[in-house]
Design a binder for these strands. Structure first.
Lengths: 335, 335
DNA sequence: ATTGGCACTCACGAGTGCCGAGTGCCAATG
DNA sequence: CATTGGCACTCGGCACTCGTGAGTGCCAAT
């Protein structure tokens, strides 16, 4: 009973602080929880919670605010919220008339940033075992070849290959024909050996090796993994992060590498949505922010999307929104 | 003589304010200009400059700061700076090993944001009259077709077309063959009439019309014009913009439309770099920022790139950096 | 046209005192 | 043993004042 009440107190502190962004005192709490207990009782509970490291006071004679650990406990045991119907409808109507994969991703990230009122992050889908539909080679000036690989699942990957010596149109045309013969309607794993063999055949020009590698890479899902974000202005809206803390966060967002690593690590926890809170991000710049992420798509490798905001965020509804968009995106991408 | 000195005073005010970000007083000015005149003289000049609307004082008994109009006069008549050699070298070395068009653009925008310490903006090259290299159609699920158009200048455009009734693989293959026969090695203007004619031929399925339109659009340079930016954190770095002013700016950056319109308007001035200062942007959110832009590429339509920062920015060196990157990008894109 | 002098105006920071929210502890109670 | 009311104590924040100094505008002198 007393233990149960302490949970309720923690919950009330988190919810209250998220709502008002001001430290919560014992009196306000006593009213808010609805449990008919006096402020003094609450104070005792708070003392214990503080000892456990779940809450802290910014300065003597102020109310309490949750620590990272407190938020953690909150999301692990206490958070749960349904997505409002209006949001559900918004997702389907807004995303359903996207015209291509880029558009889907772009709309998703915008949508998610609006729903959560946070910065939304979406990783481009990657690494799918789907058959090659067509390979195209285009001469670029004298010393480069553009390699375009179109796969059956609407992905278009492109790279360039740098040449050491010029190549004739005839050679190129022949290469296009041969590469397509070998690759079309084959998945990356299947097409790899024959393509390599072709490149290593006698009296092939040297550049075909490079082209073959480029095609294999592209078929596999491209060399680079991209991440797009939207809603950066939400960082500034709430006067929550101090002004000088938002610069580094923006840097981290543009620094794709950081984000990708972070998102990747988050897949480990296999529940549907994963949450990293404050210092859990292991990143100086993001020490005052949290990330709520979920995978989408299916099969061997999922891609990720998520929302990033101040540690003092509305976890339940953010998690609900992330989950919903991930679900929807899965449907679209898997079809 | 007296007129000439007033210009020098204005210049010194701008330069001083940019450097220190504090209003400049008559005494400091008298020292800084180097002209051997007394503070009192400067005061007279300042009174006139203020009457002309070029400078203002934030409050009584403070120094003067430039108005938008003052900055304008400064960039029109007084600004000129060379790019440091180190920067020149940075541009060529960093941009020369880009692997494809996307990469060039991405590197450019990063480079520019570093050089200027502002937010850099680069528009994707658009709308070029270059021949079609290959058109590919891919069935997406049952009711969509992905249209990919590859043009000789390494552009890859994609759209989807929604179908009302399913289409067979055979039909699709035939369409691919016929469309390529008509379009390959032809420029958009040339291929448009025959492609339309083909689509309107008797007993063609209905969907070919939509496909034909999509191909024409894509060949023309795609339906959407994209803008990428980098260095958003530079907005926060200088404590120049008040914290609550940066949110709207971030919004404007993500709102591609606003930026595109603005950049487009700036081409009018045909000198190499154009500058919009403060309210000249005609945009509430950008009222406290300036944009330095330049076109790159050549031919009928140029694309744009630029730097965006607080009105209190270092115009001469920003202009030099923008000019240099634009020059370099022109070389790359035109080749 | 330029200059020194002079009175005037404010923004800003330091110093002060008060108020109230919030705490910890203790003794009393069921 | 958990809960409660009471009480002394601590500080952050706010309002207020006041001195200081930078900077100005104007005027008379050169």
């Amino acid at each position: 009973m007393t233990e149960e009440r302490r949970r309720a107190v923690l919950r009330a502190i988190v919810e209250g602080y998220v709502e008002t962004s001001e430290p919560i005192g014992s009196k306000a709490l006593a009213a808010r929880t609805g449990l008919g207990v006096s402020p003094a009782t609450i104070r005792n509970d708070m003392a214990i919670l503080e000892e456990e490291g779940l809450i802290t006071q910014p300065h003597t004679s102020a109310g309490r605010i949750p620590t990272d650990k407190g938020y953690r406990s909150f999301v692990d045991y206490l958070a749960r919220a349904a997505l409002p119907d209006s949001h559900k409808r918004a997702i389907t109507t807004f995303l359903s008339d996207a015209v291509d994969l880029n558009d889907v991703i772009e709309r998703s990230v915008r949508m998610l940033s609006q729903l959560t009122r946070q910065v939304a992050v979406v990783q481009y889908p990657s690494l799918r075992e789907s058959a090659v539909q067509r390979v195209e080679l285009v001469a670029l000036g004298m010393d480069r070849i553009l390699v375009v690989v179109i796969s059956a699942d609407a992905r278009v990957e492109q790279t360039t290959v740098v040449l050491t010596s010029p190549v004739s149109q005839e050679e190129l045309a022949r290469a296009v024909r041969e590469v397509n013969e070998i690759t079309v309607n084959r998945t990356p794993t299947v097409l790899e050996p024959p393509l390599r063999a072709w490149a290593e055949r006698a009296n092939q020009p040297v550049w075909v090796g490079a082209v073959a590698e480029a095609v294999i890479q592209a078929a596999r899902g491209g060399t680079v993994q991209r991440v797009v974000f939207a809603g950066a202005s939400n960082l500034a809206r709430g006067s929550d992060l101090e002004a000088d803390a938002i610069g580094p966060v923006l840097d981290a967002l543009e620094e794709q590498v950081v984000l990708l690593r972070l998102l990747h690590e988050m897949t480990a926890g296999d529940s549907d949505v994963a949450v990293r809170i404050g210092h859990e991000t292991q990143n100086e710049a993001l020490a005052r922010t949290s990330i709520v992420a979920a995978g989408y798509g299916s099969g061997p490798s999922v891609s990720l999307l998520g929302a990033l905001g101040p540690t003092r965020m509305d976890y339940p509804s953010t998690m609900a929104a992330v989950r919903a968009v991930a679900r929807y995106l899965s449907k679209v991408v898997d079809s």
